[in-house]
Amino acid sequence: MAYSTPGNALGNEAANLYRDHAVWLFGWLRRRLGGNNTDAADLVQDTYVRLMDSGRYPPIGEGRAFLAQIAKGLVLDLQRRRRLEFAYLEALASQPQAEFPSAEQQHQVLEVLIRIDRMLDQLPAKVSQTFLLSRFEGLTYHQIADRLEISYGSVRKYMLRATQVCLLAMDE
């Protein structure tokens, strides 16, 4: 897909795409989100913000496909974030009340979890799988090597790489 260079027309191209496709995009997102108007409206705005931040615009006639591609990524991000929030809240519910973190601490932990998840998602599949198998399924390095059909040394290398990424996400 070829993209035009925004130059001085940045505002005009975005405004034209918004005018021509925002209502359609809202309906498309609303259907994908099970009729949730609030999330659909938020993601319409986020789609155009991401579009303008990228500075990449579709050729004439390909606006809907281009916007839908951006919006699909945002829907996946929203769903991933909701799953993380749900899992975190479930884990919190099993904690004794005395150990329950404040609302601010909960928010901070969720933000870090979301950053870690995003960073792990950008790693090669075997690296993130290795990390998840170790940390969430409790498998040993040898068990991971057997399951993924990789060497023990690869497991060690992948764990180091994933751990470094997680530490970077926590420092942001």
Rank of each mutant, 00 (worst) to 15 (best):
N16F: 05
R64Y: 03
R118E: 10
S154R: 07
I144C: 07
L139C: 05
I114G: 04
V109N: 13
D46H: 02
L51S: 04
G73K: 14
G61H: 06
S151V: 07
R81Q: 15
A22G: 04
M170W: 10
Y158E: 12
P59T: 13
L123G: 10
V155F: 00
K126I: 09
Q106D: 05
T5Y: 11
M1W: 03
G35L: 13
Q95K: 10
L25M: 04
L78Q: 14
I144E: 06
P58L: 06
T130H: 02
L51C: 09
P6F: 09
A2S: 10
G7M: 06
A98S: 11
L167E: 15
R30H: 06
L17V: 02
D53V: 07
L133V: 01
T47K: 02
A87F: 10
S134I: 01
A40G: 05
L29N: 02
D121S: 13
R147T: 11
A9N: 11
S102A: 12
V49Y: 01
D39K: 00
A9M: 13
P124D: 14
V155P: 01
N16T: 08
Y152A: 13
I70F: 03
L25R: 00
T5I: 12
E149F: 09
Q97R: 08
L160W: 10
M1F: 07
V75Q: 11
A162W: 03
Y48W: 12
L133F: 10
R32P: 05
Y141L: 08
T130Q: 04
M159Y: 10
R83D: 15
N36C: 01
E111P: 02
R135D: 14
H21P: 05
L113S: 08
N37C: 04
F86M: 13
L167C: 11
F86Q: 15
Q79P: 14
L78P: 08
A93D: 09
N8D: 14
A15L: 14
E104Y: 10
C166E: 09
Y141E: 12
D121E: 15
L89R: 12
Q95M: 06
M1C: 07
W28R: 01
E90W: 15
S94L: 07
C166T: 11
D46C: 04
D39F: 02
L33Q: 11
R156N: 07
D117G: 14
A65K: 02
L167H: 14
I116Y: 05
A40Q: 01
G61L: 00
Y48D: 07
L43P: 02
Y88W: 15
A103I: 12
